[in-house]
Design a protein around this nucleic acid. Sequence first.
RNA 1: GGAAGGGUGUCCGAGUGGUCGAUGGAAACGGUCUUGAAAACCGUCGUGCCGGCAACGGUACCGUGGGUUCGAAUCCCACCCCUUCCGCCA
Length: 431
Amino acid sequence: MLDIQFIRDNPELVAEKSKQKGYSVDITQLLGFDAARREILQRVEGLRRQRNELATGSKGRQPSDDQMKAGRQLKDQVADLEHKLAAVEQEFTALLKKVPNMPLDDVPVGTSEDENVVVKTWGDKPAFDFEPKNHWQIGEAKGWIDKERATKVAASRFVYLKGDLVLLEFALWQFAFNKLTDESVIKQVIADNNLNVSPKPFVPVLPPAVAKKEVFEATGRLNKEEQTYKIEGEDLWLNASAEHTLAPMYLDEILSEADLPLRYVGYTTAFRREAGTYGKDMEGLFRLHQFNKLEMESFNLPEESLQEHLLLVAIQEYLMQQLGLPYQLLNKCTADIGFPNARGMDINAWLPGQNKYRETHTADYMTDFQAQAMKTRVRRSDGSIQLAHTNDATAFSQRPLIAIIENFQTANGDVKIPEVLQPYIGGKTEI
RNA sequence: GGAAGGGUGUCCGAGUGGUCGAUGGAAACGGUCUUGAAAACCGUCGUGCCGGCAACGGUACCGUGGGUUCGAAUCCCACCCCUUCCGCCA
């Protein structure tokens, strides 16, 4: 949620930036509700004051008939105004929640993902002396991917993952966990990228995979309701990323400045309905209803959060470079960064089987937008209280497995294992 | 799932209709004392919203939502959560 005070002070800017992100919100109407709300609130509070004075004034003894009568009258007036207030407040909050976070100035203005800006291209695309296959051709030949039986048992866009690919997936998680919990690695990444942030390592987490609707909404992702699975008969929704349960961890809490940054790396199975993607990426592992992901989440001081965002991106690059996967780094445009984002970067890995760069990582810079709704605050060392800032970013999903299969395939249909993963897969060099 | 008990501020814990936003203790912070520390003593010590340049004033919040009442942390109803026992179970 955006701070209403900021909107009051900058109505044109908010309208303009919202439009750049592809959201239309009537700011004038919002401010109208805001003014009405405050006007009624003041009247309600005045009446409540009278009521309180009457009550404390007659403390300990039976009030007179006149006082009782005045009290009854006040009660009706207060109830009436409170009704009006609730109605206005509802309209106000509904509109306020529709205002997206403001993009930073270095976010390119654009109307679709085509206008994302490539800021870096890393690694050489592999040269094959044979026609490279895509990952589902290799995966099905190896018996790693069985979608037909998964469709029979569950539904389309589900998969049985089997054999060495499963071991490779777990190697990937283990590798990432080891790097992210190693302070010397974080230090090195900070030094290599000239960043000015704490070298504190990440705390590994296995979070719940479900959250209440109210909590889900607080993360600013409520507009994705149609993308989310709900558990029948419960107020519980399946997470579409560990971020959905990591970000609200400190819901309604005041953190200490000394404890920040708080860094977590959480593993979870993610569920997405993928509404509106019928027929898109139907083959292989690229777009499934259920997949696994390792997500980084940070809670920061306001003045440190942008550096933290850059750190998370640097870590993503580090991880991809360690695997030796060619990729592009993109500064996402206003239309693509997402509702709660102030900035967002993607890593797209090269997929020889599709002859394209495709998205494997995202890094989201949220400023205090999520914290505003989640009421996650920091007590500064001078005693003052501020909203915390949040950052999240993919460490790995299953998509890098696709990139590994396609980039490191051999002529006879095997896949070479990146050196850094070999210790986690029994020393195998090829599967 | 059944039975019983319970949810109060950072923590412990009092309060069962009227100056209660809430007694007391601990922790924390500031100070006195001390060579220093501990102890002791003194002081400070919840959050949101509205108004105000500010000082400050008002209002709301005692699991959540509703109700009763002139007045609710306190009474009533529903729900959520926790603890213990029983049952079931990875």
